[in-house]
């Protein structure tokens, strides 16, 4: 299990990196390498050129810009995990990070790498989708910004063009006091989830749902939102019966894969159950406790 040969490049600026990916044949961007190098060792991926972004300082860091947290694509998961800013402004991300791999992989793995690998069971794409984050993509042609929903295109697939590099992810923060919940089920702690669910709620007067985000992983080609359930609940009080019906109906239509870890039925089952748990936690935190399962 040794990788195929490649040439290694270590640009020190984004401009250099963009030149490289625009001009090299069959390049691959190396971020933290925690998925990519494993796939290279298996020879599932055989780039001719590896462009390592680790020495590009401008790609790393967490910055508070008003109501938005801008996170450089090369920011290590470890930095997110121990960031007070993240714990305070993006508590859902903080909670989800506890489920991301292991100590050794979080030390090296990056947020941009996770979003670009886009494993359907990964946590950080789910978090980006939950927040309606936007991603900034750069190429020699210029910069563009698209929503996480558009970026996370499908199974291990993103909207990144061959000459582009993911520069940063911008997370609009939710109002202080919003409720959130995150539940996922993996066979062992730290494994990729079989399925997971995140919920965020903002309640208005009379416990009316003003804002709701329900996001799942493990049950589709990529992380996905329960749009219909969200729409059905916004503007209403949280009613556990209505909520359950909406979730059951919407999840039932999902078409997750059958694989060595789980059947599609089981993934749907988990999605329903974990969504209810996540919403119950979120509701509780937002000040409108509801029945738990």
């Amino acid at each position: 299990m040794k990788p195929a040969p490649f040439e290694y490049h270590r640009p020190t600026s984004l401009a250099q990196a963009l030149d490289l990916v625009a001009t090299l044949e069959n390049p691959k961007i190396l971020a933290g390498g925690q998925s990519l190098v494993a796939m290279m060792n298996f020879r599932f991926v055989q780039p001719d050129h590896l462009v390592d972004l680790a020495r590009i300082g401008e790609l790393s860091g967490i910055e508070e810009q008003g109501n938005v947290l801008r996170i450089g694509a090369m920011t290590r998961q470890r930095e997110l995990e121990f960031s007070d800013l993240i714990a305070r402004r993006l508590p859902l991300m903080h909670a989800a990070l506890d489920h991301v791999g292991h100590r050794q992989t979080r030390n090296r793995g990056t947020i941009g790498g996770s979003l670009s690998h886009n494993d359907p069971s990964a946590e950080l794409p789910l978090v980006a989708l939950a927040f309606d984050a936007s991603v900034e993509l750069a190429s020699r042609r210029g910069k563009r910004r698209i929503s996480a929903r558009d970026y996370l295109r499908g199974y291990l697939e993103t909207a990144l063009e061959a000459d582009e590099i993911l520069v940063a992810i911008e997370f609009p923060c939710w109002r202080e006091g919003h409720g959130f919940g995150f539940h996922e089920f993996a066979r062992r702690h730290g494994d990729f989830a079989i399925a997971g669910a995140a919920a965020m709620i903002e309640l208005g007067a009379g416990a009316i749902v003003e804002r709701l985000s329900i996001t799942l992983n493990g049950v589709g080609a990529t992380a996905l939102r329960l749009d219909e359930t969200e729409a059905a609940m916004i503007g209403h009080r949280l009613d556990s019966v209505l909520l359950r019906r909406a979730i059951l109906a919407e999840v039932e239509r999902l078409e997750p894969v059958d694989d060595v870890h789980a059947t599609a039925d089981y993934r749907r089952h988990l999605a329903k159950m974990l969504t209810m748990r996540a919403i119950a936690d979120a509701a509780q935190a937002a000040g409108a406790p509801m029945a738990r399962i």
Binding site: M1, R10, L30, V37, A38, N41, D52, A54, R108
Partner: peptide, 29 residues
């Protein structure tokens, strides 16, 4: 395992634990 799961190859890289099967030596110049 050489695919980043077993952890037998864990070393400290600049003080932080990491899997030495998932890093290329050139990265750590």
């Amino acid at each position: 395992c050489e695919h980043g799961v077993c952890g037998a190859c864990t070393v400290l890289i600049n003080g932080l634990s990491g899997r030495s099967c998932l890093a290329f030596a050139v990265q750590e110049d």
